[in-house]
């Protein structure tokens, strides 16, 4: 595998941006500045980064309740994301969606989705639009979902539809091994989720989701297939979330510390740093410059969000319909 210097730079910058966004967002959540629950994805950065590295704004992704990483990898603005989490009017969704519903249709981001598995058919629908218009080569759909979602019927329905209609879809299963507190070994009937692709007649590949280069390589082939009109692929990306299910969840109540330590040792960012250093692909000064710039970006995102106005009360009533001749504004 050969990567351009720019791509290498982008992979590191994106993973580090996700990591620091999650840490910063959590800190703000604990300070009481977020207005609701947040689901951090730190630990899983290699997955959205390695996949979205191949996408443009014309490609579509569907995301999950743990969606900040997908948003960032798809190019969303961290200021507008932080403001959304703080419920501000300048947020990505005017403060009406929150952490679990960040979307940016101008960037090909169909939205984080808080119903487990529910965004998977949306990505299939986006791929259907591409195929309908004969634009598979420039617009594919990527459905991000977790191991928990593999127990949802609609996920299987979506795979069947994409397979029979040969749609340009990548089913990206982020297997972080826990659905809330329930381990995949208990809730999923196989330890090889990728093998389920066989039952839909599509390729299924298990990938080390802690290694951004492995993700990049697997995604490259899946997306090539999709763009070439060869249909969907299921990628199972084995990964780990460092924090609990949501900000206030203590995962030590249901995970063993040796398991956590094992994954911390395989951290995707440290792995990247070791590898590029060994191969002299990037200097420590370059990496540090990226980190410094991200630190500054995070500070700016927090300042921007904290200094942004709250949405006016009228926003309660707007955006329900495009047009509605008889709006109900509440019976009081």
């Amino acid at each position: 595998m050969r990567l351009t210097r720019e791509k290498l730079h982008w992979l590191y910058e994106t993973m580090y941006r996700i990591r620091r966004f999650e840490e910063t967002m959590l800190e703000q959540t604990f300070r009481g500045n977020a207005m609701g629950v947040t689901h951090p994805s730190d630990g899983q950065e290699a997955v959205p980064t390695g996949i979205c590295a191949h996408l443009t704004e014309k490609d579509w992704i569907g995301s999950t309740h743990r969606g900040h990483g997908h948003c960032i990898a798809k190019g969303l603005d961290t200021k507008a994301m932080m403001a959304e989490i703080m419920g501000r009017y300048t947020g990505q969704c005017k403060g009406k969606g929150g952490s679990m519903h960040i979307a940016d249709f101008s960037k090909g981001m169909l939205g984080a989705n808080a119903i487990v598995g529910a965004s998977v058919p949306l990505a299939v629908g986006a791929a259907l639009t591409a195929k309908y218009r004969g634009l598979e080569n420039e617009s594919v759909g990527v459905a991000f979902f977790g191991d928990g979602a593999t127990s949802q019927g609609v996920v299987h329905e979506s795979m069947n539809l994409a397979a029979i209609w040969k749609l340009p879809v990548i089913f990206a299963c982020e297997n972080n091994q826990y659905a809330e507190a329930t381990p995949a070994w208990y809730a999923v009937s196989t330890d090889d989720i990728a093998a389920r692709a066989d039952s839909y007649g599509i390729p299924g590949v298990q990938v080390d989701g802690m290694n951004v280069f492995a993700v990049y390589e697997a995604a490259e082939e899946a997306i090539r297939r999709a763009r070439a009109g060869e249909g969907p692929t299921l990628l199972e990306l084995k990964t780990y979330r460092y924090h609990g299910h949501f900000h206030a969840d203590d995962p030590k109540k249901y995970r063993k510390s040796d398991e956590e330590e094992e994954y911390l040792e395989r951290d995707c960012i440290q792995h990247f740093e070791r590898l590029v250093s060994q191969q002299n692909a990037m200097t420590e000064a370059e990496l540090e410059a990226i980190r410094d710039s991200i630190e500054q970006e995070m500070q700016e995102a927090v300042d921007f969000a904290l200094n942004s106005p709250m949405p006016p009360i009228e926003e309660l009533y707007s955006d329900v319909y495009v047009n509605y001749s008889n709006p109900l504004v509440g019976l009081r």
């Binding site: 998977v120 990505a123 629908g125 309908y132 539809l161």
Partner: peptide, 26 residues
């Protein structure tokens, strides 16, 4: 058959796909 698209018995799947298609311009 692309515009009169026969679907499998998969209401959640194809209604969801229709929402995705509507969100992306169809």
């Amino acid at each position: 058959p692309d515009r009169i698209r026969d679907a499998p018995i998969s209401e959640a799947g194809f209604v969801g796909a229709a929402v995705g298609a509507a969100l992306t311009g169809l």
